[in-house]
Structure formats: structure tokens, C-alpha cells
Design a protein around this nucleic acid. Structure first.
Lengths: 127, 127
DNA sequence: ATTTGATTACGAAACAATTCGTATAGATAG
DNA sequence: CTATCTATACGAATTGTTTCGTAATCAAAT
């Protein structure tokens, strides 16, 4: 077991992780360009965030060239799992079912989504 | 429309809200006593938090007696909805279904939970 | 070579969240 | 009445997050 990973990215870090998970290897500029579409931020802000994420071990980077290449180090699924579990405990008193209903209730899932969830539940039941 | 409520309680605030939602009216001590069961905190820390929550409009309080009585001002369901929606956007790229599956996958919902969700989904489908 | 542009490094400011020590006031027991 | 206990008020230290200005470095273009 090497470095502990609390896997508690902040909100800004999560935004960046999203991009890294989707696109794989990125320069700071790559990430920044996606970010500015949805929010207002300076380039050096994004840079600094990614440097801090590196210090924390959330990402790794290749510094062999002038322009560094970043890559997510923490796993998307595990991070999602961690955050969902925390929310279940923290916000829904430990009831996964209540979270699920809340999620489906107002967010108006599409028919396809609902069907795929049903299918998923059927598989879960068969055990 | 009067005061906007961003309903973005911090983690500590959420812990306190949980207790207030469950028990209704509470003194600081009531809340504190529940809190210390699961975490390490001084009484004045809890007090301060609740005072700040009051400033923010998250709770109201009756100060007519020496010992103040606190009560949640923001709605549990709405707060949950808000937080879930944010998580869907922020962590699951907008897919409620993915959140649901993640929630059910590892958290090992009980058979009863799964059944009640199925029922819920059937009702949703009939529309 | 010099200028221009893009990049990383660094440090600090601004803000927010958390924690707690100390002061003060009211209630109660002796 | 006085000592003690419990409560709130206040301020400040600490820590974490976010933001950005400025400097240094390197590459490419002129």
C-alpha cells in the first residue's frame, strides 16, 4: 500500500477530473479551453489547480517536454462510488433507495434511462 | 420573492441539518450531543456553527428564553434534490441513470429496497 | 540575435470553513 | 448573597480553496 488517497476532490478539481477522464491525456490548455466554455477563469488559475492536484496525487504529469501532459491518476468509478456513498450517508440517512428516488423523481429521466435501470435491477435481483 | 436561498450547506451544516430535520426543535446541546457520538467537537464549535447557520438563514431560532431553540428553515426534500442534481451534473455528466446504478451497485441495497425502487419505476413508466 | 508568444513556477491575496479560548450573563444550589 | 453551572457572544487562529499577478523559461518567427 503506497500513498493513501482520500479521494475527496474539491468541486473545481472535480470539474477538471471530468475533463481528464473523458479525454485522457491533456495539456493545461486543453483542459482550460473546455473549462472556459462553462465558467469564467484565467489560464493561470487552471494551471495552479492542476499543479495542486498533482501535489495531491490526483493526477500525474509528463514533464519531459516543455508543455506538460496531465492524466488522471484516480479512478473515475471509485471516485463516483466514494462520493455517492458519502451522499447517501450524509444527505439520505444511509438509504440508497431514497437517493435513487430523489434522483429519478425530479430530474425526469428519459424512458430509455428508466428501462435500463429496470434491467439493471432485474440482474441485481437474480442473486 | 424575498431572500434567495442557495441551499448550499457545507458538510458540517448538513450534519446539523440532518439532526434538526429528524428531531424538529433542538437546543444547541441537543444537537451537540448527537454530533459527538460520531465526531469529535467542542460545544462552542457546534454553537458557532449553528449561529452562522442562523445568519445564513438556514435555521431559525427562538431566543425568548435563555436557552435558544433552533429549527431548520430550509426544506429537507428541496435540499436533497438540489444536492442530487448537482451531483448528477458534477460527477455523472448529467446522467441520472449512471448515478442510480452506481448508488445501487456497491452500496448493496437490500431486496426490499430494490423491490420498492422497481415499483417506483413502474409508476414512473406509466406516463 | 531579437522579439514575440506560450508555457510553467511561485507567491500572495481573497475568501470560506472550522475550531476553540475567553468573556459575559443568567439560573440555581448552598 | 455567593459560588457554581450552563448558556450565548465574540473574536481570532488555523486550515483549505480559489484566484491571479508577475517572473522566468523556452521555442518559434522575423
Amino acid at each position: 500500500m503506497s500513498g493513501i488517497n482520500h479521494s475527496k476532490p474539491t468541486e473545481s478539481e472535480l470539474e477538471i477530473l471530468q475533463i481528464l477522464w473523458k479525454k485522457g491525456n491533456c495539456t493545461v490548455r486543453d483542459v482550460h479551453e473546455v473549462l472556459v466554455k462553462s465558467k469564467d477563469a484565467g489560464y493561470t488559475t487552471t494551471l495552479k489547480l492542476m499543479q495542486i492536484m498533482h501535489e495531491k496525487g490526483l493526477v500525474e504529469r509528463d514533464t519531459s517536454a516543455k508543455t506538460h501532459i496531465y492524466k488522471a491518476l484516480i479512478n473515475q468509478q471509485k471516485t463516483q462510488q466514494h462520493l455517492v456513498n458519502k451522499m447517501i450517508d450524509n444527505v439520505f440517512n444511509g438509504s440508497a433507495a431514497r437517493l435513487v428516488m430523489q434522483a429519478l423523481g425530479n430530474h425526469s429521466a428519459s424512458k430509455e434511462e428508466i428501462d435500463s435501470i429496470k434491467e439493471y435491477l432485474d440482474q441485481l435481483s437474480k442473486k
